[in-house]
């Protein structure tokens, strides 16, 4: 599903000097895999995730997603592909403060040209699936951290992406809430969703089927 070849991410330090965040990344992730990317702070984990999520365009090398050569796509084409295939979960949840749970779930659909009735049906299904129907009219500040992340995951998968990217999804949660989210991830993976998560937690990583270790921008161990 994902194929990275000689992928690099660097920042210029002036006069042909560069600071490398990612170096010579060669990576294959098959459909249905649950991969955990680990490593110390500054290793390049989040950068790798944002490159996979096509938020970051300043990289060199080759990146193919389901046989589409991303490196040949224009930003707008990448955005379209991202909307079709990728969902994102953040450590800070990044729910929109002024929108209710219902409205937060609706956002990704509104950017994917679903009709109003389709949106209503999908949001209702998702609320039901995640058992948060009773919270649909609440605002994020009225939810606990775990509940907010639950909404965050629900929002990431509502448009039925093939690939779910999660940046330290349990980083801000206490252990029981974290376990709940990871169980949810496992369930999604069992249903066929490919998941790539960045985590510091061995326990969270253990929910995955494969661990990639990054250090100073290099893949050091798989």
């Amino acid at each position: 599903m994902i194929k990275l070849r000689r992928l690099e991410r660097r920042y210029s330090l002036g006069k042909e000097k560069f600071f490398y965040v990612l170096r010579d990344i060669n990576l294959d992730i098959a459909e249905g895999e649950f991969v955990s990317v680990m490593g110390p702070s500054g290793a390049g984990k989040s950068t790798l995730l944002h490159i996979l999520g096509m938020h970051d365009h300043g990289w060199q090398g080759e990146y193919s997603l389901n046989d589409t050569a991303i490196h040949h796509l224009k930003p707008k084409e990448r955005a379209t592909l991202r909307n079709e295939q990728i969902g994102f979960v953040f450590q800070q949840y990044h729910l929109l403060d002024d929108l209710t749970v219902y409205e937060n779930l609706e956002i990704p659909l509104s950017y994917r040209h679903y009709s109003k009735s389709e949106r209503a049906a999908l949001v209702a299904d998702t609320l039901d699936r995640f058992q948060i129907v009773g919270k649909k009219d609440l605002y994020p500040r009225q939810l606990s951290g775990g509940q907010q992340q639950l909404v965050g995951v629900a929002r990431a998968i509502i448009a039925e992406p093939k690939l779910l990217l999660a940046d330290e999804p349990t980083g801000n949660l206490h252990s029981s809430q974290g376990e709940e989210i990871m169980e949810l991830f496992r369930k999604l993976n069992d249903e066929g969703m490919t998941i790539v998560q960045v985590t510091h937690s061995d326990k969270s990583a253990s929910y995955g089927k494969r661990v990639i270790q990054l250090r100073d921008g290099w893949i050091v161990n798989e």
């Binding site: 707008k76 955005a79 990044h94 929109l96 002024d98 956002i107 990704p108 950017y111 448009a159």
Partner: peptide
């Protein structure tokens, strides 16, 4: 800025 960034991360295009 934060909200707009999140929206873009969630699929909002420049036009949106």
């Amino acid at each position: 800025t934060h909200e707009l960034g999140v929206r873009m991360a969630l699929g909002a295009q420049r036009g949106d």
